[in-house]
Structures are given as C-alpha cells and as structure tokens.
Nucleic acid binder design. Structure first.
Length: 112
DNA sequence: GCTTTGACTCTCG
DNA sequence: TCGAGAGCCAAAG
C-alpha cells in the first residue's frame, strides 16, 4: 500500500490506521495518536485536514475522545453543511448520531 | 533552526 | 453542567 506519497511519516501512519478501521466503526483522535505511537492528538487532526486520500481516509469516521462528532474546534458541526454531510455518512454506516453525539460510541469504537 | 499554529485532550473554576 | 485555561506533539512558515 503506497498511500504515503510524500506526506510526513506520522501522517502516513495515521492514514494507515484510519484505513484499518472497518465500516460501521469509529475511532478517536486520541486512539489514532496512541496507535501511531505518540500523543500528538493535534497532529492527527492536522493529518485529517491535509488528508489527500478522501475515500481511504474516512476522516468523518474519526470523532472526539468523548464520542462527540467534534469536527473542528469551534466549528459547529451541525452548522457546517460539510460536516453535517459526514454525519449523514456515519448514519448510513449504521452509526447512530444523537445530538451530535455518537450513540453507543464505546461499542462502535474501534480498538487498534 | 526557531517560532507559530492546529479537525485535540484533560483539568480546574 | 458549562466555560476557560494549560499541556502535548508534530508539521509548516
């Protein structure tokens, strides 16, 4: 798998881990960072925004540590159509969203 | 090579 | 329960 074209090593690591997440499951920035062998939660988020691999890097499948959609800090996920669309995708993935919070978050949370 | 920024998380008030 | 502040790591300028 050569999804790591020229992106930083850490970013590539995050992409690979995210790719590992099966459908109907979600993960958190924290989990990704830990799985990558670091605690750079913020770096993970940056990798998401940089995400040059849309389909193989389901950033919408990544949620906050408390199970909230999170989206971006300060941005209202419900207010942003782009983010809301991702939520819809999650719902299609059998992931239930209630009040911007993932239902049974811990149950669908993918463990690396 | 140092400084700034960021789709985060945790703790305290 | 909600809000603000500090901490941490890595990438980009």
């Amino acid at each position: 798998m050569k999804i790591l074209d020229h992106v930083p090593k850490f970013h590539a690591k995050i992409y690979s881990l995210l790719k590992k997440v099966p459908k109907g499951k979600v993960t958190t920035y924290k989990a990704l960072a830990e799985a990558a062998g670091t605690k750079a939660y913020r770096a993970v988020g940056q990798a998401m925004k940089c995400n040059p691999y849309a389909p193989i890097v389901p950033c919408h499948r990544v949620v906050a540590a408390d199970g909230s959609i999170g989206g971006f800090q300060g941005t209202k996920n419900t207010g942003s159509k782009e983010i809301r669309k991702k939520i819809s995708m999650l719902k299609k993935e059998r992931i239930k969203i209630k009040n911007n919070r993932i239902v049974d978050f811990e149950k669908i949370l993918f463990g690396f």
